[in-house]
Design a protein around this nucleic acid. Structure first.
Length: 457
DNA sequence: GGAACTCGCCAC
DNA sequence: AAACGTGGCGAGTTCC
């Protein structure tokens, strides 16, 4: 008989989780403080160089003319006034409070070369002030001890602070290398990162049990993102080994599938997809966007299929969205409706792990909360069990951090094989045994970094 | 001089 | 009819 998880089960998970996370906090992660100091100075010199370059321009002299000695290139308030009030430029986008935005996207759409310098300065200052500075400030005796909290997040995920271990740059190569170069294993050890692949998609399937999604997750040959790329870009086939075709797959994944799961809609999707493939929000002519093959561009291809403008593409994406939820994933879609209906009736929702979310929430929030929380709980239980095995068997290896669906270990090389086996046992056997609602195989990836090498691939 | 706010930007 | 979920944090600004 199936027994549903209770609040007491949820409590126990967080009680044990708190203890395991506290032990990881106490272990800490080794940090190269001298490197941080050196790199900080290096970044400061680069920033000063860009600042000098900016200050020599007409644009900045205008800025100084308005603000005098108070002119500050880090003031977005001043920049916004200068661009949108003094220079009368039409704001490409506005902020939450309705003022002209000065974020990267907005500045990128304004044809003033000086703004490029500001963006470069912003990026370097972000690395220096948010990461390297914090690493130096927060370290004691060459170790960082980030906090991991379980009481801050509405979805019953974790948060991290002092410093935040969960937002160290990864996607931008330069930022990633500069920041992660600072984080090291203990002497003679290596960093090992384990992460669940597509965990939220898998956990979502445990809630809605859509047969089409279950097939995608169980059948290694099938590929949801490739299928969506084929549909969106009207392709007969998709070869992931071709870089351009793989880019189309990434566009479908990040510009349509994931945003749809979070509750986005075709209008934003169409804009995002165009961004991915380099097409403008206007009429399309031959030779626009990314090149599919010699002399054949994405705009040629879509025009040949009857989509000759952004406007038309938006209409087409409406059809794709409709097909996505009404046909392809209609069981998933019915679950969403029923789930929201039930919340509106009860005033709360209950997760598969026993946690309760109550209070006023919008539709998208209600759909996302259980999936986001439950996915993290899979990582947390894995973390707890690993910590338990580690202490019982007196490993020299240590758990040092966690990022929602990902854990970082500081491993003594001769223990690696045993640790791999332990992780696999926990994820493949113990998790599904404890939680019988896990109806899809959970997969984990292991990334092993070099002995004495930093957290840089 | 600190609290509370906005904005921008990093992660999943 | 509306239209992307969860955080932390630094700098600048405003208010007391």
């Amino acid at each position: 008989m199936k027994i549903k998880a209770t609040t007491a089960d949820a409590y126990k998970l967080f009680h044990n989780g708190t203890l395991a996370l506290a032990r990881a906090e106490r272990q800490g992660i080794r940090i190269d403080t001298e490197y941080c100091e050196r790199k900080k100075q290096h970044l400061t010199r680069k920033i000063n160089k860009y600042q000098k370059e900016l200050q020599g321009t007409k644009f900045y002299r205008r800025w100084e003319h308005i603000y005098g000695r108070k002119a500050n290139i880090y003031s977005n308030h001043q920049l916004s006034r200068l661009l949108y009030h003094i220079m009368k430029i039409e704001p490409p986008k506005v902020t939450e409070s309705g003022k002209g935005s000065t974020d990267e996207d907005a500045l990128g759409q304004i044809d003033i070369p000086e703004l490029k310098i500001i963006l470069k300065i912003r990026k370097l200052a972000k690395i220096r002030d948010t990461y390297l500075d914090a690493f130096i400030r927060e370290q004691t005796d060459g170790y960082l001890h980030p906090s991991f909290e379980l009481h801050n997040v509405r979805t019953y995920r974790s948060s991290s602070s002092n410093p935040n271990f969960q937002n160290i740059p990864k996607r931008d190569k330069e930022s990633m290398q500069i920041c992660r170069r600072a984080l090291l294993p203990r002497p003679g050890h290596m960093l090992v990162e384990m992460d669940f692949s597509a965990l939220e998609v898998h956990i979502g399937a445990c809630y809605h049990k859509d047969p089409v999604m279950l097939k995608y997750l169980k059948d290694k040959e099938s590929d949801m993102h490739a299928d969506m790329a084929k549909q969106i870009f009207m392709l007969e086939a998709l070869d992931r080994s071709d870089p351009i075709q793989n880019k189309l797959r990434s566009a479908a994944k990040n510009g349509f599938v994931f945003p749809q799961f979070y509750g986005d809609y075709y209008g934003n999707n169409a804009a995002s997809l165009c961004e991915w493939v380099g097409l403008p929000h206007s009429k399309w002519v031959p030779g626009m966007g990314i090149q599919l093959s010699d002399g054949y561009y994405i705009s040629d291809h879509l025009r040949n299929n009857g989509i000759k403008s952004f406007q038309k593409f938006v209409e087409y994406m409406k059809e794709v969205e409709d097909d996505f939820w009404s046909n392809r994933f209609h069981v998933y879609n019915n679950w969403r409706d029923k789930w929201v209906e039930q919340y509106r009736r009860d005033g709360y929702l209950k997760m598969l792990t026993g946690f309760t979310c109550a209070g006023v929430a919008r539709k998208n929030e209600i759909i996302n909360y259980p999936i986001q929380g439950t996915a993290f709980h899979c990582l947390l239980l894995t973390f707890i069990e690993l910590d338990k095995a580690m202490r019982k068997e007196k490993w020299d290896s240590k758990l040092v951090g966690q990022i929602h669906d990902d854990a970082l270990l500081d491993v003594r090389p001769d223990e690696l094989e045993h640790i791999k086996g332990t992780i696999n046992r926990i994820v493949k056997e113990e998790l599904p045994k404890k939680w019988d609602w896990i109806i899809v195989p959970l997969d984990i990836d292991l990334e092993v970094y070099g002995v004495d090498k930093p957290w840089v691939a």
